[in-house]
Structures are given as C-alpha cells and as structure tokens.
Design a protein around this nucleic acid. Structure first.
Length: 979
DNA sequence: CTACGGTCCTAA
DNA sequence: TGAGTTAGGACCGTAG
C-alpha cells in the first residue's frame, strides 16, 4: 500500500469530522469578513487533506486512540455501537443448569425475554438476542481441568443486560446460580477483548469492506464488517503523527477578584499546533478581543465581539488529537464552556461533546507564571500595543518546547501501557490500576475458555463463586480473611543505623513478587480446597504445594499452568525483549518508545500482586497475595542467613559478611571493616553490581548513599525517604538537607557540611532566608493555589502560609499567615519556629551518626546567637501597635516623625544623611538587579514585569527589595524636615 | 509529660 | 461499571 492511502488517525471521526468541516467552512466565510487573509491561511493549514481513497482498492489504516460507546440512533434496534468499529452485542455467562439441552434454549429465552420486557417496560422490543451453550471453565479454583456447559446470553443493549444479570434466574421453576460470569466488564473493554483490539494499536480495514459515507447520510450505519487489528509489534509499534494543540486563555478579571465565567470575558486565546515528530509548531495564532498589533510569525485573529471570538476559536479547534496547556482541564476548558454558554456563543455544542463529557487529563501541577489579574485588564483596556504585549505573554504560555517534549514522552509511555495492557488510552488517565490487570486477565482467560465470575462483596468478606456444575458447596464460601483484617506484608529488616564509610553491597531480587507467582504457580486456576483435593485424590508435594500462608494449596504446573503465571511470564519476557531492543536502538525517539514499553511491562507485572490483594476489588484472592508476601518474607530471611553463613571467616573468607538492612526484596551487606579484597569479590562477582559507598542509614525506609554500578565512577546520590525526596517539607529544609548530604557523601567534607548548616541557621535567624523557601511545598498546597473560581480553599486543601511570631504556645492557626500579607505588613517571621520545628530534627538525623554528641553544637553554637532584627510582638495585637519614631543616630524615641534625629545627634546629621543615601542607593541597585532578572525570565528586557507568581523565589525577593527601598526612602525623607 | 490515633507521604 | 498492596517514619493534636 502506498503512503498516500494511509489516513490520519482522526479519520475515525469521519462522520463527525466531515459534518463539522462543513460548518467550519461556512463559519470561515463569516470569519473572513473580519480577517480574510488570516482565516484563509488557517483553513489551508488546519484542514486535514481529505484522502482520495477508493473503497474498492484502498485499505484504511489508522492508529486508534479512542474507543467509545454510543447508541446508534438510526437503527430501529437502537443498538449500542462502538464508534468506527461497528456493532457488537453485550453478553455474559451463567452456568447451565444440570441437564440443560439445546432444546431448552427457546423456552428459557422466552421466559427471560418476558421478564426483561416487563422490567424494561417495553413490550415491543426484543432484549435477549441469542442464547447459546458454550463449554467453559471457571477461573476460580482448580477443578481437574473439566469444562462445563455455560449459557452465553446476548442482549440487545447494556441496560437490559445489567437488569438480567442482577435478577434471579429460574428455569422450569428451579432457581439458577446467582453467580454470573463476565457480566461486570465494561462493554467497551468486552468488545476490544473479543476483537483483539488493544489500546492505541493500528487497525486496518481492507478494501471493499468499508464505504465512505456521504455527508447527507452521515448518521447512517457504519458498514465496516472486517478489520485487521495489528498487534503492536515491529512495524506496528510506530506512532501516528499526532496533532498537538497547545493553548492558553486570558480572562479579564476584575481587580483583586478571581475571574468568573459568568462575569469576566475571555479576551485572548493563544494556540500552537505541532505535529508529533516535528520540532516547530505549524500553526501559531492568537484570537484577540479587539484590535491587536501584528506579531512576528503569528496569525492574529482580531474579533470584535466575545461570542464571535469563542465561535471562531471553536471552529478553529476542529481536529486536534491532543490538547495540552496549563491546567486546561480544571480552568481553561470549563471556563470556555461556561463562558460560551453564558453569552450564548454558537458552535460550541460540537466542541462540548468532544471535550467536556470526557474531560480527562494527565495531572498537571506545574505552576504557571501568572500575570496579575488587574494587570491583564489594564492591558486589555489599553491600545493595540498593550494587547499585543498580552498576546505575546499568552503565546508564551501556549508554547514551551520542553514542556511539549515532556508531554510527548509521557504520552508515549501511556501509549505503550495501553498496548501492553490492552485498555483504551483514556482508561490510563481516568481509571486505576485494576482495569489494566482485568483487561489482561480477560484476554488470557478468553484464550483458554475460562470464564470469570462477577464476585459479590459483602462488607469485607468476599464470596467465591460457587455453582452446581463443579459440585462445590452452593453456599458461597468466604475467604479465610476475616472482616477488617489485613494480610501480612513484607519484612523490613531492622536497620543497624549509622554512617558507613565502607562499601555496602546491595543484593536484590528483580521482580520478586511476579517471580514468586511464577515459581509457585500461584493463580486463581490452581487454587485448591479440601473438597477438590479429596474429589480428585490429589497428593501433597506430588500434585500440589502448600504455601507458608495458612497452608493455602496450589496445584503444580504439570496439572495446570496458572493463568497469572502465564501473564507474568509473557510480561517479563516482553520486557526482556524490549530492553534488548532498547540496547540496540540508536534513534532517540524509538529509544523512548522502547523504554516506555519496558517500564509499562514492569509496572504491569508488579500490579498483578496488588490486584489479587485488593479486597474491595474485582477479583480478590487473598490466598494468592498473602502467599506471595509469605514467600517473600521467607526469601529475604533466607537470603540474610545464606549471606552471613556463607561469606564468613569460618568458610575461609577474609571477613564476616553482615546484613545491616533490607526491605522486601533487597539486603544491604557490610563485609567487615576496611575494603573488600579482589579475592573476595570474585566468587560473587555478579552480586556486586550495586554498591553504596559511603552509606548513611538513618532508619527503616530512610537512607542515603553514593550509588556505584562500576568501580570507576559513582552513578548518583541515592536518597530514600529523606526530606529531600518528600514533598511535604519546605524548600529550606529540602535544600539544606540535600546540600549537607552532597557535601558529606560526595565531597566527603563533613566540616564543610557543618559550616554550611551553621551558616543557614544563622541566616535564618537573621531573617535572610527568602520567604518562598519557608512555605510548605506539598502538592496539596499547589493544588490549592490552582486557578479556581471563588478561590476560597475548600476543606482539606492546604494554604500557602508562613509561621509568624506570636505569643508563646499560641495555637498554629494564630501563627500562620498569608505570605503576601506578611510581606506587605512587615510581620516578623518566627525564625525560631523554623529552626526548632523544621530544620533541627532532619539535620540532627544526618549529623548525629557521623558526629555523635558533637552534632549538638550545630544548634547551640555562636551562630545561633546573632542579633535578631525583629520586633517583639504580642500575638495578634501587634497589628495595632503604633511604632514610635526613633532618632536615626542613637535610636532614642522621639516625639514625632517630623525630625530625623534627637538634639544630641544633630551635629552628625550630614553624616547620617549620607549614610542613609548610601543605603537607599544600594537597595535600589539590588532591586534593579532583581527586576532585570524577572524581565529576563519573561523573555524581554523592554517591557514591564508582569509576573507575580507566588512560587518564584525572585518574585519574593523583588517584592521585599521593593519594600526595602520604599522604607529606606521614607526614612530619607525625614531629613527633609531638618533643613 | 507520654501515649495514641490520624494524616501525609514514601519504600518496595 | 470506584478504589492495586502492606510497612513505616515523621509530625500534629489531644486525652490522660
């Protein structure tokens, strides 16, 4: 097939896209009245070439990204339809009653149909399409590999199906099994599994198997009957040239009030469209309300009416595959939709159906540099030059190449995940981990004629499906796990805390839990109970194993190879393959794809264990998960023993090995004092792949060390669980701890680290630490700071705050204050609080193992006795205290602000004036420098600074510098009264 | 003052 | 058709 016949992925929206394209063109004519040239350029750029394909000769090949479910309105059946793929009918299974024959189907179907029509309150329609008998096996438990008859029941719609599966079945007045099979799987996923479609794979529709639907028939039935689904390997692991629309909006908020869609207009929308794989955007434009001066390499679309602008934009957004932008899910998109609704802009319904109903997105907590709301309005209300400045700002937010690249890599990882697990792309964003395991489980089960029960949970007790065909107790049997109980997890070896200035060897099991499941054949399909052991006359150790968890028993692979072990083997093998290919690959983009793939495979393998242990989940099996962890505990314990008993002086080695720590699947080993000899290295060469040297072991799950994988260079500073990797600490703590660790572990300079820590403490007590460093820096705080109408923090949100001085033992809520307020009102920060409550403990934890008792001097030395230039305060009353003016020479209180000095200091007036002038000058220089820095960050030296991001450290410094200048100038002015 | 439970985040 | 697991440190507020 030729390149020309390959169709863009969005061809899947044939019906809708064509429809919108016609209105798009209509509305373009409208737009042209305003800006003919520009819109013409747009149309040419945006519109995907309508491919000239002939259904008789050309196949359609595309990478599908979305599979969804809708009702086919045109069909008299109102059939459910998977868009672009065709029609499939939902179904589920129940075990057939004993003795059920093909002849019984008609009678059964009639009775079921009757019940459904009654319950659906619809007499004329047929709900049960078909019932057939299939030989299947339940996934739950080993039953001697016997297949049994199941009734596969097809329905005309999903609602009827869910009604049927919730009801009680009867046949010839005998109640049937309450347990249904495969009735609780998402319809879309069901379809994909049955058709062997995986997320983001390539679909090929051969010639003559489709037809191009004329516009006037665009709602009619899709005629595609046969498609080829390419498994995502080799050639078909490629990625379609996606169109990525990156955009940003600006709203004209009222002064000091967060913009609300009902009131405040959208004034600009900047857009960039990039094709994946190309480094420059091929469309760069900005829609502006009112006139706007030209911008280089950018189409400026001037609109003179709010509704017109929104319409023009919604028409512009015909066909992107991916939308990105700062917080567009939570702010930009909802705002646009609300606004369009409010002002009655036309053309949004289409837009709405595509982007609002399924609003899902990759969580994006980046901080946008904000233009202050009041400034936006001023710029908007200015002339076309000021609006141009705003537009440039808006464009800058829409396009950041690095961000684009990051998002793309992220996208690739997701895509690989979709392909590996088989779920549609959007599930990865909107669903959890379970669905991925379910998808794989159903796929593999399908191949082996296994059916999966829809388990019912009652409280915390999970009931296994039980039914007559297997002669298992018809009354459901609860798991051995009682209500509220948790199963035991992994072992964490008690750490021998301390600083190790010797190489610490680490051994770890790769993919421990998956390997355990494979090695011991742990699976739903291999789990045994007493009854089956008796029935099938199975022999312990010969036919089955008993795990260390409550004597759970599983048959050996020769009787039946478990489904989970098969899935895991496939995943691990695929990962091995991906890693091998990754090693050979040179092209960076394909490298990233492969890396994403191997990562996806690893995560997939690891989440199988979690799935079996999810008591509130779809198919929990504590026998499996608890056996896995029980084996794991045995293994780590044994590893410790083996290492210590084998590598010891008694066995002819030079040193005794000693396990100083271990967690779940790893052990850290110290080989006595000093170095490790060559002779000793040899026999366990492979295991020396990873070494920490030096190594600081602080506590369980808390350590840091220099990580080596080859003897010549260290790879990285690895820190686990320490403040540096935790997001709930303020920046000051993170930075200090990080720097101290680097100095100690990399530079091996303990005293340098001490000095550094002392300097920081001294700076802190002298108020020299910038405020942005003192704010809690958790992701919750960021979430709270998101642009959010009404902007009042909801319960549970964390607010940006700093701790200020208040009366001793004042409750925390009296001591915390908004940083902006603090800055503007000169409220003293409680530096001691930060030292005692935030900095001291983390620092002590690091220095204590190295310095012992000496480390106390860090917190009590001379550096802590600096003069504190803060005003003493009395709680909240401080706000009302009137500051008494003092003499600028000797600080004696004065009667009024009119004079600068007392009479004793009057002779020094000139000298004091000069001094103050110097102060003002140097502060102004400092301020100017920060100003320039902000301008540089903004990308231009010729404009005012618009940024007021609360996260930017420079911003706080600048704000503080500005205030310092103002204060110093105020003092200077007092001299005016003297002459 | 300590003990304890709740919250948050991380290790694996 | 809502949700992977357990172990565990650090911190905070409160009960006693």
């Amino acid at each position: 097939m030729s390149q020309a016949t390959r169709v863009n992925p969005n061809q899947r929206f044939n019906i809708h896209t064509n429809a919108s394209r016609s209105t798009f063109e209509e509305q373009l004519a409208l737009l042209q009245e305003n800006s003919q040239k520009t819109s013409e350029r747009h149309r040419q750029k945006w519109a995907r070439p309508v491919p000239n394909i002939n259904p008789d000769f050309d196949p359609i090949i595309f990478q599908q990204f979305e599979v969804d479910e809708c009702i086919d309105q045109s069909s008299s059946m109102r059939s459910p339809m998977i868009r672009m793929f065709g029609i499939t009918e939902p179904y589920f299974y129940i075990p057939a009653p004993v003795g059920f024959k093909n002849d019984d189907i008609a009678e059964f179907q009639t009775s079921l149909e009757y019940l459904l029509q009654r319950d659906m309150r619809s007499q004329g329609r047929q709900f049960v399409s078909k019932i057939e008998i299939n030989l299947k096996e339940t996934i739950q438990g080993y039953h001697g590999n016997r297949k049994c008859p199941f009734l596969k029941m097809y329905f005309s719609d999903t609602k009827a199906m869910s009604l049927a599966q919730a009801g009680t079945f009867k046949f010839k007045d005998r109640p049937l099994s309450q347990v249904t099979f495969e009735s609780n799987i998402l319809y879309v996923l069901r379809f994909m599994i049955d058709c062997k479609v995986t997320g983001a794979n390539w679909i090929e529709i051969p010639p003559k198997k489709y037809r191009i639907i004329p516009l006037e028939e665009r709602d009619s039935h899709c005629q595609i009957e046969l498609v080829t689904c390419h498994a995502p390997d080799g050639e078909w692991s490629k990625i379609a040239p996606l169109r990525i629309l990156s955009f940003d909006i600006e709203c004209a908020g009222r002064k000091g009030i967060f913009p609300e869609a009902k009131i405040d207009p959208v004034i600009q929308i900047a857009n960039m469209v990039t094709i994946q794989g190309e480094d420059k955007p091929f469309i760069r434009n900005v829609f502006t309300l009112n006139s706007c001066a030209p911008i280089v390499a950018t189409d400026v679309i001037e609109c003179y009416d709010q509704a017109e602008m929104l319409q023009a934009w919604s028409n512009f957004v015909v066909d992107p595959d991916i939308l990105i932008g700062y917080n567009i899910i939570n702010f930009d998109l909802p705002y646009l939709l609300d606004r369009a609704h409010h002002i009655g802009a036309k053309g949004f319904p289409y837009f709405e159906t595509r982007f609002s109903s399924k609003a899902y997105g990759i969580r994006d907590r980046e901080q946008k540099e904000e233009v202050h709301h009041s400034i936006i309005t001023d710029l908007q209300n200015g002339n076309d030059e000021t609006r141009r400045r705003l537009a440039i700002y808006c464009l800058k937010d829409a396009y950041l190449p690095q961000r684009l690249m990051d998002k793309l890599m992220c996208l690739i990882n997701y895509m690989e995940m979709a392909r590996v697990t088989g779920v549609p792309f959007n599930y990865l964003l909107s669903r959890g981990q379970q669905i991925k395991v379910i998808s794989q489980l159903f796929r593999k089960a399908f191949e082996q004629d296994l059916v999966i029960p829809a388990v019912k949970t009652e409280g915390n007790q999970v009931f296994i499906a039980a039914f007559s065909n297997y002669n298992v107790n018809l009354n459901s049997k609860p798991y051995s796990l009682g209500t509220d109980e948790q199963f035991e997890g992994a072992t964490v070896i008690e750490p021998e805390k301390g600083f190790y200035n010797v190489p610490i060897t680490t051994l770890d099991f790769s993919s421990l839990y998956p390997s355990i499941m494979i090695a011991h054949n742990l699976c739903y399909t291999t789990l045994l109970d007493n009854k089956e052991i008796e029935n099938l006359n199975l022999k312990a150790e010969v036919d089955y194993i008993t795990t260390p968890y409550n004597s759970a028993r599983f048959v050996k692979p020769n009787l039946r190879k478990g489904l989970l072990p098969t899935i895991l083997e496939d995943l691990l093998a695929a990962r091995k393959k991906a890693k091998a290919e990754l090693k050979k690959e040179i092209d960076p983009f394909r490298k990233a794809v492969l890396d994403g793939r191997q990562l996806a495979l690893k995560i997939s393998a690891n989440s199988v264990y979690g799935f079996t242990g999810a008591t509130a989940g779809k198919l929990p099996c504590i026998e499996i998960s608890a056996s896995v962890t029980a084996y794991g505990r045995q293994m780590i314990e044994r590893t410790k023993q083996e290492v210590e008993s084998r590598f010891c002086i008694a066995n002819g080695y030079k040193h005794n090995a000693h396990v100083i720590y271990g967690d779940t699947d790893s052990v850290m080993i110290k080989f006595a004092a000093g170095y490790v000899t060559e002779k000793f290295l040899n026999p366990i060469k492979l295991e020396f792949e990873k070494v920490y040297f030096p190594y600081l072991l602080i506590n369980k799950k808390r350590y840091a060390g220099l990580y080596w994988t080859n003897p010549n260079n260290w790879d990285k500073l690895d820190t686990k669980g320490i403040e540096t990797v935790r997001r709930d600490n303020c920046l000051l703590v993170q930075n200090v701890v990080e720097t101290c660790l680097r100095k100690i572990l990399i530079d091996r300079d303990v005293s340098g680290a001490e000095e550094y820590a002392k300097k920081i403490i001294s700076d802190l007590l002298q108020n020299k630490i910038d405020m942005s460093q003192l704010q809690p820096h958790s992701c919750l705080a960021e979430r709270m700071r998101k642009r959010d109408p009404g902007s009042a923090p909801t319960l549970g949100d964390r607010v940006a705050y700093v701790i200020i001085k208040a009366t001793k033992n004042a409750p925390a809520y009296e001591k915390s204050e908004d940083p902006i307020y603090v800055l503007e009102n000169n409220i003293p920060i409680d530096t001691n609080y930060y030292l005692e409550n935030q900095l001291s403990k983390p620092l002590m934890r690091i220095f204590e193992p190295i310095l012992g008792n000496k480390s106390n001097s860090l917190l009590s030395g001379d550096h802590t006795r600096v003069t504190k230039n803060t005003t003493p305060t009395v709680g909240g009353l401080m706000k009302f205290a009137v500051k008494t003016p003092t003499c600028l020479g000797c600080k004696t209180p004065l009667k009024g602000n009119d004079i600068p000095v007392c009479k004793h200091c009057k002779p020094k007036l000139g000298e004091l004036f000069q001094k103050q002038l110097d102060v003002v000058n140097s502060l102004e220089i400092h301020f100017a420098r920060l100003w320039t820095q902000c301008q540089r960050c903004q990308g231009s030296l010729h404009q005012d600074v618009l940024c007021s991001s609360r996260d930017c450290p420079i911003w706080y410094m600048r704000k503080k510098a500005q205030k310092d200048v103002a204060d110093a100038t105020g003092i200077l002015e007092r001299f005016n009264h003297a002459w």
